[in-house]
C-alpha cells in the first residue's frame, strides 16, 4: 500500500556545511521560506515548531533524526488549517549528498495515514521553498519573495 508522498530533488552549487546551515538556521530559513522559521535544537527527540513570519505556529512535530551535513527526519503535523491538521502526522526526510561537485538535496514527505490534503499543500510549497533556497545559496538572493 503506497501512502500519499511527495518527492522533490534539487541540485545546488554549495557545500554540505552551507546547505546544513541554510536548512537549520532560523535567520537563513526566513529568507527563503517566506519568513517562516523552525524552532528546535535539531537533536533527535527534540520538539520542532515551524512558525510563520509573525510568530504564529504553522506546524509542529519532533526531530526523529539529525545528522549534520547528511540527513534530517522530522515527524510533522500541520497546526493552522483544521482540515489538514485532521489528517495527522507526516514524516519529512531531507537527504543531503555530494554529487559531481555540487549538493543533491532530496525531500521526501510522506503521510503516516492516508489523507491527501497535506501532501497536496506541501507539493505546492516545497518547489517554491527549494527554488528559493537554491537561488539564495547560488546567488545570494531568492527567486520568489511573495509571503506565503
Amino acid at each position: 500500500m503506497n501512502r500519499p508522498k511527495f518527492v522533490y530533488v534539487t541540485y545546488i552549487k554549495t557545500t554540505a556545511d552551507k546547505l546544513w546551515v541554510a536548512l537549520t538556521d532560523p535567520a537563513t530559513m526566513r529568507k527563503y521560506w517566506f519568513g517562516a522559521f523552525a524552532e528546535t535544537d535539531w537533536r533527535p527527540g527534540s520538539k520542532w515548531t515551524l512558525k510563520f513570519d509573525d510568530g504564529r505556529v504553522a506546524d509542529s512535530g519532533e526531530i526523529l533524526e539529525a545528522e549534520p551535513g547528511k540527513r534530517i527526519v522530522i515527524r510533522w503535523r500541520n497546526e493552522w488549517k483544521e482540515e489538514i491538521k485532521a489528517e495527522g502526522w507526516s514524516r519529512c526526510t531531507m537527504t543531503m549528498e555530494p554529487y559531481q561537485g555540487v549538493m543533491k538535496l532530496t525531500i521526501e514527505h510522506e503521510m503516516e495515514g492516508d489523507g491527501t490534503k497535506f501532501i497536496e499543500a506541501v507539493s505546492g510549497g516545497w518547489p517554491r521553498i527549494l527554488s528559493n533556497l537554491k537561488s539564495l545559496l547560488e546567488t545570494g538572493s531568492v527567486a520568489y519573495e511573495t509571503k506565503a
Binding site: K13, Q100, S131, S135, E138
Partner: peptide, 11 residues
C-alpha cells in the same frame, strides 16, 4: 535554473 540565474550551469 543555475545557468539563467548565475550564468553558469551545474557540471
Amino acid at each position: 535554473k543555475s545557468l539563467l540565474e548565475t550564468g553558469t550551469p551545474l557540471a
